[in-house]
């Protein structure tokens, strides 16, 4: 049976990305983010619809990455996703960018023909926080039966200080293989010797295609998975709280 069309939006990283699953095809578009991306996102979506030759009315669900990432770009994607879902009264599912990266890392790991064996390697997802030397970090333990890398062992996002300790071994001190993935890996002050870095240069934190694959693998849009029901932005960090000197004099 043909699966209903699903749109995926990923703007938490430095790219503005959208992907559309229509029938057996998965189409995607990406371009650099930055100024004006909140408008260009819609041009990408229109291009995808045109290429897939489907109407916006046929979209059956919207998947979106909810961060952490760039605050402003993240909001542009989330606001667009909410708007589309509300307008068409269709399901909206939002995955954290940690989960998206863990899924992408697992895809890369499996596609490289690697076998985890009994080692249960640990994955550190390290995401660019736009703050030098201070990326967002989450840790995952390997589970061969999980669609992500495995269960997250921490998702505090701000605790890169314990990475070295976490990477150096399990709780008994035995060495375990350690993998790093994400667009913030280069921001880490120290990468352990036994670490391996999974590379995906064109989408270093997971792409909108990964998001689409993740959503479909978990039965979206017929089913909204538990870990995708929180559709609020995941900021990790509190806002800077300096009031503006002059809010909006024209």
């Amino acid at each position: 049976m043909t699966q209903p069309p699903v749109l995926a939006i990923e703007t938490a990283g430095r790219l503005c990305q959208a992907a559309l699953a229509a029938g057996d095809r998965i189409l995607s578009r990406a371009e650099p983010g930055g100024r004006g991306q909140e408008g260009r996102l819609f041009t990408l979506i229109q291009d995808l619809l045109r290429e897939a030759q489907i109407s916006v009315d046929e979209i059956a669900g919207v998947a979106v990455a909810r961060g952490p990432g760039g605050f402003t770009s993240l909001r542009a994607g989330l606001a667009a996703a909410h708007g589309l879902a509300i307008a068409k009264n269709i399901p909206l599912a939002a995955w954290s960018s940690f989960d998206l990266a863990a899924f992408a890392a697992r895809q890369i790991f499996d596609s490289q023909g690697r076998n985890a064996g009994d080692d249960r390697p640990r994955l550190h997802v390290v995401l660019d926080s736009r703050r030098a030397g201070d990326p967002f970090v989450a840790h995952f333990n390997y589970d061969p039966n999980d669609i992500l890398w495995g269960p997250a062992v921490s998702e505090k996002g701000d605790d890169n200080g314990d990475i070295i300790a976490a990477a150096s071994g399990d709780k008994n001190g035995a060495a375990v293989p350690v993998f790093f993935f994400g667009d913030g890996v280069h921001e880490l002050p120290n990468i352990p010797d036994n670490a391996q870095i999974l590379h995906q240069p064109e989408s270093p934190r997971g792409s909108s295609v990964h998001l689409l694959q993740l959503a479909r693998a978990l039965g979206f849009p017929e089913n909204i998975p538990e870990n995708a029901r929180n559709t609020q932005a995941l900021y990790i960090r509190p806002p800077q709280t300096s009031p503006p000197s002059s809010p909006k004099n024209a």
Partner: peptide
């Protein structure tokens, strides 16, 4: 600008839909 982006993005999505 943060509010403008949020409001306009939601509005444009509604218009597109």
């Amino acid at each position: 600008i943060g509010g403008l982006i949020t409001g306009a993005s939601a509005a444009r999505a509604l218009a597109l839909a």
